[in-house]
Design a binder for these strands. Structure first.
Lengths: 364, 364
DNA sequence: CTGAAAGCGCTTACAG
DNA sequence: CTGAAAGCGCTTACAG
């Protein structure tokens, strides 16, 4: 019986090994292989010898050692809550942007999954232990008065739910997005425009509601409080909210359109309308916000507001790298958020209002 | 004018700093703060002094230094192609599982985004430079004969498209999933069951097709080659494939059901059917595979095959950690893939076959 | 119970 | 053009 191949992990080659093999110092090898300093200081022949030895030994620089010597990990962190299935698409888009930008700048990306921002603040501190050079906070929601962030690490946030001291926030013009959408609906002739708002107290909810109100006023449409209802950010809550409203208002005039706080809620809204036999957009139009994956897979596809999530992720990384390079964890340009524009994306869920006003169907 | 607050990043405190502040050696501080070795070797009072000093200085261990000393980064890598929007949901689910398991074992997770497995093999080598202790290959597709993976790093793959030497693969029983789905359709009375297959040459395509054929045969249904068409894994290709087929077979008997290679293709199939006025599931049933996000947002929702993606991600991490602990990069249990069971998830897109056989509608 | 020493693998000055 | 030395911040033996 042949001896079993053990295939034990062999110690990886070091610069010293390479130097020895090439008959030079580890230093010379360093200059050639990882040389920040011009490797022109090494003679061409020596250089070739070193390169050959490195190839033969399959030399790979040890990142930890380099990081220790340089005091830079060339790694960025991303802290996010990503369990909630409803945020998946949001996370993925932004995350892709982050990865792209990080890769372009030869930075690693480490992901820290949180469950709850307030609760996990200690873990957040734990991440800032030299393994990353800076941290992107993805949609952080700190509700406590004074949340203390680690001081030795530069931060950038995306869609922060409120200003965080010393942290630049990357956000989109949600208020304008809501405004444009509702203006779009009004321009099509919709007059009774309903809004399914998000949970109270969140910045996104407030901004989108504000845009809705302003657009109504700009279109000289009355603001009717009973046309504003509340949901969470997920589709079941959207479905329930809409279902509920329909039940209570049977026999009354049907809204011409519903502007939902996000796409998931809009999906729930579509379901509730389908349940009572209302057709979208023939009987009633529905609009969302986010342009998530869901927006393109519903039937009909959702008219919605698109935020340039990928670009926002990229921008966050660039801001963060600038912050790291400038070596300040402090308020480089704090308080001045970077705001991205948004677009209305027209799809099939929004059409003309019906010529003959419809009523809310009686429930079975 | 007050002097501008510069807020320069101050050097983070080290063990030496803490030791000095507490009047002990760095070593004593190490034992108390990061102590693998019982910190009982430090007297309670000293211990308290050290803890207090550490808190005052906001001491954080430097991960790079620790990694260098330990030769272990406590970090895992995940290499994946994640741009393709169609893989998003797949990636997210698995990734969540990976993050959970990694966090449970106090491991970091670093993501390496690839564009193409064959092409990026050099970058893959580049990642294995001491920054991670092991690497999860997510759905790798190597098409070259001999792909050489780095030798000093343990690997685990998920859904590898073919065996990779020395790498344990975590996969699901796709063949059985396809079999069960088609058997389910046949049991409902569907006889003419169409299959929209994936691109040729991929393992997933082959396995699902094989399950389809076996189920037909088990149900004593004839295998009709013209009922098998090919698409990619995305919905536009699914739509086109179905559209095309309908166009060519106008006036012929309509299939009772369509089993699609994945949910995205099923979404495209739904669209093509809707275009010609066919109702799902009244006129024809449609089934997918994957139970992706799309499966729950279509109208009607998709009957599909669920793979336990999250659990598979977790398992991959556990296998990888075992491999790392055993300190072998070699074939610990190579060649023996870990196979997860799959389930048929019943939703509204599959119903009874129509009592009166329908014909493929003539195209406008 | 505690400390001085050596080493992890790399860099960056500083000498030749 | 090249090398010996010191240091990044932590650990792990080894002495007291």
């Amino acid at each position: 019986m042949p001896p079993r191949k053990k295939n034990q992990t062999v110690r990886a080659a070091t610069l010293a090994d390479v130097g020895r093999a090439a008959g030079v110092s580890a230093m010379a090898a360093s200059a050639v292989l990882n040389g920040a300093r011009t490797s022109s200081r090494i003679s061409p022949e020596t250089r070739k010898r070193i390169l050959k030895a490195a190839a033969r030994l399959a030399y790979r620089p040890n990142i930890a050692a380099r990081a220790l010597a340089n005091r830079r990990m060339h790694a960025l962190g991303v802290a996010a809550v990503i369990d909630a299935s409803e945020l998946n698409h949001y996370f993925l888009e932004v995350f892709n942007g982050i990865l792209e930008a990080a890769a372009r700048h030869e930075q690693n990306t480490t992901v820290f999954a949180l469950h709850d921002w307030d609760h996990d603040i200690a873990r957040l501190h734990g991440f800032c232990d030299g393994r990353i050079d800076g941290l992107v906070l993805l949609a952080p929601v700190f509700t406590r008065n004074k949340t203390v962030l680690p001081t030795h690490t530069p931060f950038v946030s995306i869609h922060a739910n409120g200003a965080i001291p010393h942290v630049v926030n990357v956000e989109s013009d949600e208020e304008r997005g809501a405004f444009e959408m509702v203006r779009h609906l009004a321009a099509l002739g919709h007059q009774r425009i309903m809004h399914i708002a998000g949970p109270a107290g969140l910045l996104g909810t407030t901004r989108r509601l504000r845009g809705y109100k302003q657009a109504l006023s700009a279109a000289h449409l009355p603001f009717e409080p009973r046309l504003v209802i509340t949901a969470s950010f997920d589709s079941p809550s959207g479905r329930n909210a809409m279902r509920d409203w329909l039940r209570r208002h049977a026999g009354e005039p049907l809204p011409h359109a519903v502007f939902c706080v996000n796409d998931s809620v809009a999906v729930g809204c579509l379901e509730a309308l389908a349940e009572v036999g209302l057709r979208v957009p023939e009987d009633i139009s529905v609009a969302g916000f986010d342009d998530s994956l869901a927006a393109r897979t519903t039937v009909p596809q959702l008219t919605t507001v698109r935020q340039p999530l990928r670009a926002m992720g990229q921008r966050a990384v660039e801001l963060l790298l600038a912050r790291i390079a400038s070596d300040t964890a402090g308020p480089a340009r704090a308080g001045k958020p970077v705001v991205f524009p948004v677009d209305v994306v027209s799809r099939a869920s929004v059409g003309q209002p019906p010529v003959v006003g419809r009523l809310v169907p009686a429930q079975s």
